[in-house]
Amino acid sequence: MKWAIEIEDLTVAYQQQPVLWDVDAAIPTGQMTAIVGPNGAGKSTLLKAVLGIVRPAAGRIRVRGRPFRARERLVAYVPQRAELDWDFPATVFDVALMGTYGRVGWLRRPGMAERARARAALERVGMAELSDRPIGQLSGGQQQRVLLARALAQEAEIYLLDEPFQGVDAPTEATLLDVLRWLKQQGKTIVVVHHDLSTVAEYFDWVVLLNVQCIACGPVAEAFTPENLRRTYGGRMVVPAPTVNPA
């Protein structure tokens, strides 16, 4: 198995509180991986640690066998919608175009090629007609599509998405899933922080069960078991019977 992301002994702390504790996990290249766990389990922090946005207290992260370097732009990040200020003066197209900013050098403006790439990305997520709309006028689902379009315009190898399915309408969920599957067909690696346990088996190939520590990590068929879910969520929730037969 080729690994897109390898995480070893990762510990992250905020104000002396461990958010991630001694996490070992590996994410395979060219597959769809879900990161699952209760609130406060450190799922978003794990993504941010991979991207170098938060600094780990200890541990090692390798992206395609090497330490992560933002300058290579191999990893596209789709943050949680709620983390952004949607009253910012920008249109749908402006945000999609931001995905290309990494390739455009200092002192230069995005040119024809970048604009075409942003347009194609919007087309892919079904937002081409709303290109000129201010982002303040979008629904939650449309906001999520725009953020995915921005990541597509980046043309990365690995896509890290934080709760993309959270609170979006059904058509948007279907579109997002279509786009992610299309990316997978191109051999890209997709990692999604996911809340809905009932769709894990249907959507994903690989799963990381996280609750500060890594409880399990592996193919959905092997790792997504009732026993592991109980260990991840503790007694705090009733674990639905997964539809996967571990046999």
Partner: peptide
């Protein structure tokens, strides 16, 4: 463009290597 991106989404700007 760098200022615009940092104003709108600092975390994303960092992942592009800005």
């Amino acid at each position: 463009k760098e200022i615009q991106l940092v104003l709108f989404d600092e975390a994303y700007a960092a992942t592009l290597g800005l």
